[in-house]
Amino acid sequence: MSEDWAPKTCTLPTVDRPLRIAEFDRLFAFVLRAQRSGPTQLGLVLPRHVEAAARDLARRESECCSFFAFEFGSDGGDVLMCVTVPPAHIGVLDAIEARCGRPR
């Protein structure tokens, strides 16, 4: 899988993209469960102790890729992070889902 899965509409400078991908990979290492609830939505269950980092990363990612919608809720004692994209960006969600399943 390509390391540059960011869409062309991303405004994050290209030089900063590997750092952002590394941040996502660190977060994805904590994913307890990932479930696709439709082609445009992915739910990630995370332990409560990474919630602040997940919210911060979601906020910053929304600034450069405004098509992302992130919502947070709870799943028992854990955090549910829902990632939604428009149909034109399903490939980005596919890449995120694949990265969540990669061994670290």
Rank of each mutant, 00 (worst) to 15 (best):
E3A: 12
A6G: 06
P7D: 10
P7Q: 06
K8H: 12
K8P: 15
T9C: 14
T9F: 15
T11D: 07
L12W: 14
T14A: 13
V15H: 07
D16W: 11
D16Y: 12
R17N: 05
E23K: 11
F24L: 10
R26W: 13
L27H: 01
A29Q: 11
F30M: 05
V31N: 01
L32N: 04
R33D: 00
R33C: 00
P39T: 02
Q41W: 03
L42E: 00
L42S: 00
L42N: 01
L42T: 01
G43E: 11
L44A: 04
L46C: 06
P47Y: 05
V50I: 09
E51V: 08
E51K: 13
A52K: 09
A52M: 05
A52V: 09
A52F: 06
A53C: 03
A54W: 07
A54C: 02
L57E: 06
L57I: 06
A58N: 07
E61G: 02
C65Q: 06
C65Y: 14
S66Y: 10
F67E: 10
F68N: 10
A69K: 13
F70H: 12
E71T: 15
E71W: 00
E71F: 00
F72C: 00
G73V: 00
S74C: 10
S74D: 14
G76F: 09
G76Q: 04
D78H: 14
V79K: 04
L80Q: 02
M81K: 00
C82R: 12
V85N: 08
A88R: 08
A88M: 05
H89K: 07
H89E: 14
I90H: 11
V92A: 10
D94H: 05
I96W: 13
E97S: 03
A98M: 07
G101N: 15
G101K: 13
P103D: 15
